[in-house]
């Protein structure tokens, strides 16, 4: 299969830029998988996990919000933040999740509630990615 180009960029840096076979991203309407020669697409992202497969290798990244564009066999992800699995501080993510849950239990104002839910989603995505890395190496799926 002809590879497609993927670029994952945040305001601070280029997180990932490679030719890959498959991209799976957390679209706002649910997870979406993108294969080469996908139709032009524009979607917002929610916090979650981005997986890209290149050859037999799969890389997983945590992303929190942003936009994804597919255009001319190129996937551009403009993320609010994105980290590769090895960059995630699991203890910190755990702590953030605990704090967010705490805040959700103690009833705060609406704005705080929204932020707490967002924070909770972010930390959950990070933890998921970090844990996936720990449970590997798994056999490459075909």
């Amino acid at each position: 299969m002809a590879p497609m180009k993927v670029e994952i960029i945040t305001a601070e840096r280029v997180v990932y830029s490679e030719d890959v076979d498959v991209v799976v991203a957390p679209g706002i309407e649910g997870e979406l998988g993108i294969l080469p020669h996908h139709a032009p697409l524009m979607t917002t992202l929610q916090s979650g996990e981005i997986r890209v497969r290149k050859g037999g290798e799969e890389i997983s990244m945590a992303v929190s919000g942003g936009f994804l564009e597919v255009m001319a066999n190129k996937v551009t992800i403009l993320a609010d933040s994105a980290e590769r699995a090895e960059e995630i501080d699991e203890a910190r993510a755990q702590e953030a999740m605990r704090r967010a849950e705490e805040r959700l239990r103690t009833h705060a104002s609406d704005v705080d509630l929204e932020r707490a839910v967002a924070a909770l989603r972010r930390s959950q995505a990070r933890l998921k990615v970090a844990r996936r890395r720990r449970t590997r190496p798994s056999p490459p799926q075909v």
Binding site: I28, E29, A39, P40, L41, M42, T43, T44, F67, A72
Partner: peptide, 22 residues
């Protein structure tokens, strides 16, 4: 060949509404 048939998720208004100010 690339013009037209852009898919927006969830829909055009939402995507543009958050993308343009950003």
């Amino acid at each position: 060949s690339l013009v037209g048939g852009y898919i927006y998720e969830p829909n055009t208004t939402e995507v543009l509404g958050s993308l343009l100010p950003r």
